[in-house]
């Protein structure tokens, strides 16, 4: 039986510190390694090392979609649920946004309409999981297939993506949001990702939503006994993830200047990876939005940095290995906690 007065030993304090701050240490380590590696030899980054302004800007703007998504996805996983459809939701949003724009809809209406689409896509997930009581994994696998299927159907036969061609021309401003319209050297999409992340941090720390998500994932019975409407909380979180997937789709579409129905493929895996890397427990209850954000930075630095060191076809292997390692370490940490 444990004593009431527990004096943490210095070893415990080190462990605690590592658990709380390891993600930042990993980020520093990754940056140091990648920036001390001599990249001049490699053709992709002939202009200098990892920390060059150009490279950092490059990484950050490629990262905009996952950075947008990480926060909401973290909150959803904290509540003990999962969304495997984010990649497809992102693709569908990218296609719809590109279609709207290429057909002459101005930026703001197209943007808002796509975000509303995100609300709908998230709400469908929430409906399947909460109202129809389909297991989250299966429900979101269904919508993974559905959203991707719709995205593919929206693109004309024989064409791989919505892009300039024939009578339709993508307006010149289409790239501005995700690539060319810059503020302090970075595109709007990146700043939106920052804003979304700040909003999610506020939601986690200053709003009922974050607290209720933790309660729902940590101890659902206690949450219900405390009068929390866990069903509403979860649906709301699915909607948030849907919205963020739509924003990510707009960013990706604008970055690539086309609406590619496959552009979000694999995003669910990246999202799970960065969230696990950030220390979110898959059993729910635990996790920090900011740490997932850092996790996303690490993964993107690694991916882009790696492209400078090894050929692109190493990417799947590295992401898969990272996912397994993150899952294992995450598990070992949480098991040690429960044994204490």
């Amino acid at each position: 039986m444990t004593d009431l007065t527990q004096n943490p030993t210095s070893g415990d304090r080190v462990k605690r510190f590592l658990k709380d701050y390891y993600i930042y240490l990993v980020l520093i380590l990754v940056v140091v390694v990648l920036s001390t590696a001599n990249l001049d030899k490699f053709p992709l980054f002939e202009r200098g090392n990892f920390l060059s302004e150009r490279n950092i800007i490059n990484i950050l703007r490629i990262s905009a979609p996952i950075l947008t998504l990480a926060g909401a996805f973290t909150l959803l996983m904290i509540s003990g649920y999962i969304d495997l459809s984010v990649g497809s939701a992102m693709s569908l949003s990218a296609v719809v946004y590109a279609m709207l724009v290429i057909n002459g809809v101005p930026f703001l209406p197209a943007f808002v309409a796509t975000v509303l689409l995100g609300v709908l896509l998230g709400a469908i997930n929430g409906f399947l999981v909460i109202r129809l009581k389909i297991t989250p994994v299966i429900a979101t696998l269904i919508t993974l297939s559905l959203y991707k299927g719709i995205a593919l159907l929206l693109v004309e036969d024989g064409v791989s993506a919505i892009k300039s061609g024939g009578d339709l021309k993508m307006p010149g401003w289409f790239n501005d949001y995700g690539r060319d319209g810059v503020l302090f050297g970075l595109p709007w999409a990146f700043w939106v990702a920052i804003l979304v992340t700040i909003a999610m941090i506020i939601a986690q720390d200053r709003m009922k939503l974050g607290k209720y998500a933790a309660a729902t994932g940590g101890n659902p019975t206690a949450a219900k006994l405390s009068g929390i409407n866990t069903a509403r909380t979860v649906i709301l979180l699915y909607v948030l993830v849907g919205v963020c997937a739509a924003l990510a789709g707009i960013a990706r579409s604008s970055f690539m200047s086309l609406g590619d129905p496959l552009s979000g493929d694999g995003m669910e895996l990246t999202a799970i990876l960065v969230v696990l890397l950030g220390g979110t427990a898959f059993s729910g209850g635990e996790g920090r939005v900011l740490k997932s954000f850092i996790g996303a930075l690490i993964i993107m630095s690694l991916t882009v940095g790696m492209l400078t060191l090894v050929p692109a076809y190493f990417q799947t292997l590295v992401v898969g290995t990272a996912l397994l390692l993150a899952a294992a370490s995450n598990h070992l940490v949480s098991r040690r906690d429960s044994e204490n």
């Binding site: 709003m207 607290k211 309660a215 940590g218 949450a223 405390s226 209850g285 635990e286």
Partner: peptide, 23 residues
Amino acid sequence: HVVDQLTVLENLTLGMEASRLGF
């Protein structure tokens, strides 16, 4: 029926929080 992942204070106020617009 306590939520391990929350603080003592958060547990004590769980479900009774004062809030405005969700904040």
